[in-house]
């Protein structure tokens, strides 16, 4: 059932984000600001982040089994190692995005 919940939160978040974009696109920035600063929005977003990370872990574990992660010519990663490698990749990608769009 958690799988259904993660997908539910991910899709609702995507819809909310599109709504946020519509607020931005309307040119009325204060309504955007007001919306994202609403505690309900923040609360929902924290839950959505939590479920998205949960999704990431289960997705990595599934994909790690379907597409075996090779550590070398003879060595294949254990399922746990595969998840760890993917999570590390996730952090690197996240930092790259932060750097690219925010810090730069």
């Amino acid at each position: 059932m958690i799988r259904e919940l993660t997908s539910f939160f991910i899709s609702i978040y995507a819809i909310i984000y599109i709504y946020q974009l519509s607020l931005l696109a309307s040119g009325d920035f204060s309504s955007y600001d007001l919306f994202v600063r609403n505690p309900a929005t923040i609360g929902f977003s924290i839950i959505a982040l939590f479920f998205t990370l949960y999704h990431a872990v289960t997705w990595f574990s599934l994909m790690g089994r379907i597409q075996v992660v090779k550590l070398g010519p003879k060595k294949t990663a254990t399922p746990l190692q595969a998840i760890a490698i993917n999570l590390l990749l996730l952090l690197i990608i996240a930092y790259a995005i932060v750097y690219l769009f925010i810090l730069r």
Partner: peptide, 11 residues
């Protein structure tokens, strides 16, 4: 959703 969404939500 696994690799890109978390950072977007966070920022």
């Amino acid at each position: 959703a696994a690799f890109l969404l978390p950072v977007l939500i966070y920022i």
